[in-house]
Amino acid sequence: NITNLCPFDEVFNATRFASVYAWNRKRISNCVADYSVLYNFAPFFAFKCYGVSPTKLNDLCFTNVYADSFVIRGNEVSQIAPGQTGNIADYNYKLPDDFTGCVIAWNSNKLDSKVGGNYNYLYRLFRKSNLKPFERDISTEIYQAGNKPCNGVAGFNCYFPLRSYGFRPTYGVGHQPYRVVVLSFELLHAPATVCGPKKST
């Protein structure tokens, strides 16, 4: 009989979020998941679920829940969905086509923008091939755009693969920082350890 609540607040209220190319993952297990707390949290810009209804989450049990978190621009949030393409979905964070879970995003301009620009948040701009679902690539190898080998030196046709967002408070909404948490639900042939409040007695 599990009684402790799942530590969703640790994920959602973290002081610093990860850059999207180096997205953070927390495994959540052996706890009671009260999703209504999240669902009623006012400032969400997006709360979209795939393969599961957000209002039914509290009735369900899962083997594991993974909480992935990172920061992207407002106009990139739409790429955090199954079957998407674009710089983020291709080179930074890719969801599987059969994704079961929820994508939760909110504007973090007050936290993550600075006058003069916040350059701490990076994304991958160049990559030889697209990421596989949930693949994480933190390499900083110089990207070779031409035929000539770069030998690890940036220059003509040789690019550092990461780019900084440089968030400023005055940017338009599409270019403002958004914090994103992706909850993915794993249902294995194993005992369920993460259940909603109704199922955990």
Rank of each mutant, 00 (worst) to 15 (best):
V52T: 09
P161V: 04
G86L: 02
N24S: 13
R124A: 01
F17Q: 04
Q84C: 08
S29A: 11
S29M: 10
T85M: 08
W106P: 00
S139C: 07
N157I: 03
D34F: 05
A22P: 01
S19P: 08
I28P: 01
K198N: 15
I142E: 03
Y21L: 05
A81F: 04
N109W: 06
N151D: 13
G172P: 00
F8M: 08
A190N: 13
P169C: 03
S113P: 01
S29G: 11
L5F: 12
L111G: 09
V20I: 07
N30V: 05
V173D: 11
K132P: 07
N1L: 08
G116F: 06
Y35S: 09
D98M: 08
T201A: 14
S69E: 02
P82F: 02
T201P: 14
F8L: 12
L60D: 09
T170M: 06
A22G: 08
F156G: 05
T201L: 14
A192M: 13
N92V: 01
R27C: 10
D68P: 02
E10Y: 07
S53Q: 14
N75L: 13
S69Y: 07
P7F: 08
E76G: 05
V77S: 00
C61R: 13
N107H: 04
V103E: 00
I104D: 00
K128H: 15
L95Q: 01
L188G: 15
L57P: 05
A154I: 09
I88Q: 02
V153D: 12
T15N: 09
K114M: 11
L183E: 00
K110N: 11
N92I: 01
N87P: 15
C31W: 05
R168E: 00
S129D: 14
D97I: 13
R25F: 02
N64E: 12
D90P: 03
L38Y: 05
C49A: 02
G83A: 08
S19F: 02
L60Y: 15
I88F: 03
L162S: 02
P133W: 06
Y178M: 14
K56L: 11
S53Y: 09
Y39G: 12
A14W: 05
V11I: 14
I142A: 05
L131W: 01
S113I: 01
V180I: 10
F185I: 08
K132V: 10
L60V: 12
V65A: 10
P82S: 03
S139N: 11
E186C: 07
Y171F: 07
Y178S: 05
D98V: 09
Y165L: 05
T63V: 11
P96N: 08
Y66Q: 08
P197A: 15
T140P: 10
Y21K: 02
G155L: 04
K26A: 08
S113C: 03
S184A: 09
I88S: 03
V37R: 15
A42Q: 14
N87K: 15
H189F: 10
T3R: 11
A105T: 11
I104Q: 00
T100K: 13
D59Y: 10
L111Q: 14
L131C: 04
V103I: 09
N92H: 02
D112W: 03
C158M: 02
Y121I: 09
A89F: 03
P149N: 12
S19G: 06
P161M: 03
V37L: 13
D112A: 03
D90R: 13
F12R: 03
V153L: 13
G117F: 03
L57A: 07
P133V: 06
Y123E: 05
F44C: 06
V103A: 02
G166I: 03
T140H: 10
I88T: 05
P133R: 05
L183C: 02
N1Q: 12
D90M: 09
C158R: 03
Q84P: 03
G74V: 01
C102Q: 03
L183Q: 01
H189T: 15
C49W: 11
L5E: 13
R136M: 08
L122N: 10
Q84E: 09
S69G: 03
G83E: 08
G74R: 05
E186Y: 08
L5N: 14
S29C: 10
R124P: 00
S36E: 11
K198H: 14
Q144C: 04
F126P: 05
S164K: 09
R124S: 00
N13H: 09
A67L: 13
V103K: 01
Y143A: 03
A67S: 04
P43G: 09
F167G: 01
F41K: 13
K148M: 11
S108Y: 02
S113V: 01
V71M: 04
L122F: 12
V77C: 05
Y171S: 00
A192T: 13
P161N: 04
T15Q: 11
Q79P: 01
K114A: 13
R127Q: 03
F70C: 00
I2P: 13
I88D: 00
N130F: 09
L125D: 01
D59E: 15
S29L: 07
G155Q: 11
C102W: 03
G152Y: 07
V20N: 03
F99S: 01
C49M: 03
L131Q: 02
K132T: 11
Y159R: 02
G172L: 00
C158T: 02
Y50A: 01
A192W: 11
K198I: 13
N87A: 15
I80N: 01
N87F: 15
N64F: 10
G172N: 00
F47P: 08
V182K: 02
P82V: 05
F99K: 02
H175A: 03
A42H: 11
Y21Q: 05
N120H: 13
G83V: 05
K199A: 15
S200C: 13
C31G: 06
G116L: 07
P169Q: 05
C158G: 02
T15R: 10
D68M: 04
L111K: 14
R27T: 13
N130E: 11
N4R: 15
R168I: 02
G174W: 09
N1E: 12
S108D: 00
V180P: 00
P177L: 01
F99E: 00
T3E: 11
G146I: 02
P7M: 08
V32Y: 12
A18H: 10
Y39C: 07
L60A: 10
Q79Y: 04
R168T: 04
Q79W: 01
N24D: 14
T140I: 09
W106K: 06
P197K: 15
S129K: 14
V153I: 12
D112C: 01
I72R: 01
N1D: 12
V71K: 03
A14L: 06
N118Q: 09
A105K: 06
G152M: 10
G51D: 06
G117H: 03
T100M: 13
S113M: 01
N120K: 13
G116W: 06
E186F: 07
